[in-house]
Nucleic acid binder design. Structure first.
Lengths: 224, 224
DNA sequence: CAAGTAATTATACACACGATTAATTTATCC
DNA sequence: GGATAAATTAATCGTGTGTATAATTACTTG
């Protein structure tokens, strides 16, 4: 849409002359990726222009094409070098949880909300580019950790149910959905509730609430 | 992004000559709004061009400006005449629920999933244009039903908690978030799980699962 | 039946976008 | 120290976008 403001947050730096920089200048690549990530999070990948990233990074758009070749390749670099490391630490955190179903759930809940605490940009990017249909990162993410982590969780829930350690009215696959719906979704929608309730429902409160709800539901008979 | 295909799903209709149509032709306005809604759902509001809507509707883009004046006004019309009626029926459904907290929760869960069943486009549009930061419908929706429905729910949960009818470890406001995270969110993410689990987790299964989880959590001691 | 209004297409404008190429400056190598 | 490669900006191209205006046809009213 032509009605979106290009909000240039950077102060007008004195425009640089062309030519290779001197040796003391640092490697621009991570700086460019960080600028791209910030823009992607703020405006979405489709809504971000190379000109906007370049302005935020203090370079010209042509430099982005010099480093990455195309906008698509820049997106891939951001995915590989920023998003994947974040989700891989979550996978490691969950994979090292014990056999007990309560431990597994607790590990997932705290793992997700720890990820959110250390990478505050994650929920918004995940919603826009993975959850949204046609999101620019859905296929990439699903093809990388998609088939692995969720099915491992669903399998563990199904096994616990077979052993009589899990409420038989639950669907093991929907348990995976519920875990995300009680952790990543609240984190992603936090701005809405902050505006609606005029209060900041923190990450720790989310974890406690989710664990209480997963523990015994609305029931009052098992309070700690 | 310029790499998106404009996927013209309509068959090439014989191009019409200019001029006012004859009397037997029906009112185009609802047809235009439906075409716009379909495009907004498929590609997002920012990602939809007036040319795309016009092509799907079998008219020229100038006609859209004749009927609505601008893309922004068209968005408002779609919101007012398609989205609002849907959420208003949900509000009515929930408002007529009894005092019992279980009845309230059941009414909300079935209300949301009934809304999803009758308006399958709702979850995707809600994610993209309300949940996403900068979404084109967030402010509109929050200013219309925002302050009313969620705070009424949170107040009812807080009151039930005061009467000892609700697990004291839960946060009444996060209960509202959890309800949406267990209903609208699973519906919105259904395409992901369909692809991941190679199975269609239907709306009824979602309702049963959510009610079971809300009832007693993972616990096995209270099975029906 | 003439004048005016309503509904539609055709054309065009100014702008933003992604990408390409040329120019320019610095570093590196023989 | 001259040639070549690397890293940067400047300028440009083709395309898609929202919107405005003009042209065209049909209905309505006197």
């Amino acid at each position: 849409m032509s009605t979106e403001k290009p909000r240039s947050s950077k102060r007008r730096a004195p425009p640089r002359a062309p030519g290779r920089p001197t040796l003391d200048s640092p490697d621009l690549r991570p700086h460019l990726i960080d600028a791209a990530l910030a823009c992607f999070v703020r405006d979405g990948i489709a809504g971000t222009s190379l000109r906007g990233i370049a302005a935020d990074a203090g370079v010209t758009p042509a430099l982005l094409n010099y480093y990455f070749g195309s906008k698509l390749a820049l997106r891939d670099a951001v995915f590989e070098e920023r998003l994947m490391p974040a989700v891989l630490t979550l996978r490691g955190h969950v994979a090292s949880a014990g056999d007990d179903i309560q431990a597994l759930v607790g590990s997932f809940v705290r793992g997700v909300l720890g990820l959110v605490a250390s990478h505050p940009w994650f929920p918004a990017l995940w919603v826009r580019e993975v959850l949204c249909e046609g999101g620019a990162l859905r296929e990439l993410l699903l093809s990388r950790i998609g088939p692995e982590l969720p099915q491992m969780l669903a399998a563990r829930f199904a096994e616990a149910q077979r052993r009589g350690q899990l409420n038989a009215n639950l669907d093991p696959r929907l348990m995976v959905v519920s875990l995300i719906g009680l952790t990543l979704f609240p984190a992603a929608s936090a701005p809405i509730w902050r505006q609606l309730f005029q209060a900041d429902l923190g990450v720790d409160a989310m974890a406690n609430h989710a664990l209480a709800l997963l523990g015994h539901g609305l029931d009052t008979t098992h309070e700690s």
